[in-house]
Amino acid sequence: MTVEKNWQEILTPDEYAVLREGGTETPWTGELIEEKRQGKYRCRACDAVLFASDTKFDSHCGWPSFYAPLAKDTVKYLEDNSLGERPRVEVRCANCDSHLGHVFHGEGYETPTDDRFCINSICMTFDEE
């Protein structure tokens, strides 16, 4: 049995499409967009802690947004040329290599980093503190 077959047994088809195939959920449909409680956001595939609620902010883009990961080594970055224009930066879980979303810099948000980690809700679970 291949590793990808294992992921297909663990994840729903929608989760698999985003986490393992690099898809994107439809904006404004994710369950964590309006989440305001204190807690941690974990990778839905491997349960690694990725983001903390104190770095989440309202960017009004249709997906949960964070200005920084929990720690620098919790995510990894890949250049994404899939749209054929200026490269984007893909964000992946450093533990299991699942696609999470993208990070954008310099958009003018009043956050400590001026970064927007635009993360698919379907890629995460939430643990309230």
Results as ranks from 00 to 15, higher is better:
2 T>Y: 11
2 T>E: 15
2 T>D: 15
3 V>S: 09
3 V>P: 00
4 E>L: 12
5 K>N: 14
9 E>D: 11
9 E>G: 14
10 I>S: 04
11 L>K: 02
11 L>S: 07
12 T>A: 03
13 P>T: 02
13 P>H: 01
14 D>R: 11
15 E>P: 11
16 Y>A: 07
17 A>K: 15
17 A>G: 07
18 V>Y: 00
21 E>T: 11
24 T>R: 03
25 E>T: 04
29 T>F: 12
29 T>D: 02
29 T>M: 08
31 E>K: 11
31 E>S: 15
33 I>F: 09
35 E>H: 02
35 E>Q: 13
37 R>D: 15
38 Q>Y: 06
38 Q>N: 12
38 Q>M: 08
39 G>V: 14
40 K>T: 15
40 K>W: 06
41 Y>F: 15
41 Y>K: 08
42 R>N: 09
42 R>T: 14
42 R>K: 14
43 C>D: 05
44 R>N: 13
44 R>Q: 09
45 A>L: 07
46 C>W: 09
46 C>N: 06
47 D>C: 10
49 V>W: 06
49 V>N: 09
49 V>F: 03
51 F>P: 09
52 A>S: 13
52 A>R: 05
54 D>A: 01
54 D>F: 00
54 D>N: 08
56 K>C: 00
56 K>H: 02
56 K>S: 01
58 D>V: 00
58 D>N: 13
58 D>W: 04
59 S>L: 06
62 G>S: 03
63 W>N: 01
64 P>E: 00
64 P>R: 00
65 S>M: 03
65 S>T: 08
66 F>R: 04
66 F>C: 00
69 P>I: 00
70 L>T: 06
70 L>A: 04
70 L>C: 00
71 A>W: 02
73 D>T: 08
73 D>W: 07
74 T>V: 12
74 T>G: 02
74 T>A: 11
75 V>L: 02
76 K>R: 13
77 Y>A: 02
78 L>S: 10
79 E>M: 12
82 S>M: 09
82 S>D: 10
82 S>G: 10
83 L>W: 15
83 L>G: 05
84 G>H: 10
84 G>E: 04
85 E>V: 04
85 E>C: 06
88 R>L: 15
89 V>W: 08
91 V>C: 04
91 V>K: 07
92 R>S: 15
92 R>N: 12
92 R>H: 12
95 N>S: 15
96 C>S: 13
96 C>K: 11
96 C>Y: 10
96 C>D: 14
99 H>C: 08
99 H>R: 08
99 H>W: 09
102 H>F: 13
102 H>K: 07
103 V>C: 00
103 V>E: 03
103 V>D: 01
104 F>V: 14
106 G>V: 11
107 E>I: 10
109 Y>F: 15
111 T>V: 01
112 P>Y: 06
113 T>C: 08
113 T>Y: 07
114 D>Q: 04
114 D>P: 11
115 D>P: 03
116 R>N: 07
116 R>S: 11
118 C>T: 04
118 C>M: 07
119 I>A: 01
119 I>N: 03
120 N>M: 07
122 I>D: 07
124 M>P: 05
125 T>P: 04
127 D>N: 05
129 E>I: 10
